[in-house]
């Protein structure tokens, strides 16, 4: 049995949970795991494609978050992006250790589908940001979208993307730069409104 925790449904801010974790409060740890387990597992599964490995990576992600909760700085980003970055890095490390083959670049397109199709409650955490970015992502050219997602989510370098896409290195670099810049511009424009 697991004892301790915050009642389900309580909207205790992430920062409060991380503050609790930083000083060893089990309840805060449980609540944090409960809040983000599906997101972390989902990202790991999307990168690795193996449920067993994805669970291992997801669990290790929460162990890392527990250990380093005290150095989380809300001024440098939100808790979910911090946590998901840990998960992404662990998944990429796991993939490289296993010498996994690069995934089909079309697989990266799950991101746009997920962002546009999911019900609003699933994007409640970082919902506005996710929606704006999802719209911007859908609006940029497909080749730029693939390049950006392969780099941002799958950790692929420009050289690796060039090989995957069978394009010159310069073209891969250009697609990454143009895609990311357009996303930045689109999100900035929406923020004005």
């Amino acid at each position: 049995m697991v004892h301790g925790g915050f009642p389900p449904g309580e909207q205790v801010p992430d920062e409060a949970l991380l503050a609790g974790m930083a000083v060893g409060d089990e309840g805060a740890g449980i609540a944090f795991v409960r809040r983000y387990q599906h997101r972390v597992f989902g990202l790991a599964l999307a990168i690795l494609g193996d449920p067993g490995l994805a669970e291992d990576v997801a669990q290790e992600t929460f162990v890392r978050a527990w250990r380093h909760a005290s150095v989380f700085d809300a001024r440098r980003g939100s808790a979910p992006t911090w946590l998901l970055a840990i998960a992404r890095n662990l998944a990429i490390d796991c993939m490289r250790v296993r010498r996994a083959l690069p995934r089909d670049p079309e697989d990266a397109l799950w991101l746009e589908r997920a962002s546009l199709d999911r019900p609003p409650e699933e994007t409640a955490l970082g919902a506005d940001t996710a929606r704006r970015l999802g719209r911007a992502l859908a609006a940029i050219p497909a080749e730029q979208r693939r390049a950006v997602l392969l780099a941002a989510v799958h950790g692929r370098s420009a050289r690796e993307i060039a090989e995957i896409e069978s394009i010159p290195l310069g073209t891969a670099k250009s697609r990454i730069r143009s895609g990311l810049a357009r996303l930045r511009d689109a999100v900035s424009t929406e923020e004005v409104w």
């Binding site: 697991v2 089990e26 740890g29 449980i30 795991v33 409960r34 387990q37 599906h38 997101r39 597992f41 989902g42 990202l43 599964l45 999307a46 449920p51 669970e55 997801a58 669990q59 929460f62 162990v63 527990w66 980003g77 979910p80 992006t81 998901l84 970055a85 992404r88 799950w110 991101l111 746009e112 997920a114 962002s115 999911r118 699933e122 994007t123 955490l125 970082g126 940001t129 996710a130 970015l133 999802g134 992502l137 950006v148 997602l149 941002a152 989510v153 990311l180 996303l183 930045r184 999100v187």
Partner: peptide, 27 residues
């Protein structure tokens, strides 16, 4: 900021049954 926020678009997948318990045990 944009690069980090892209991770928010990752799909949500239901964690395996017992994931929460196993994770807490691992902690």
């Amino acid at each position: 900021v944009v690069a980090d926020d892209l991770l928010l678009l990752a799909p949500v997948a239901e964690a395996p049954l017992g994931f929460e318990l196993r994770t807490v045990e691992r902690l």
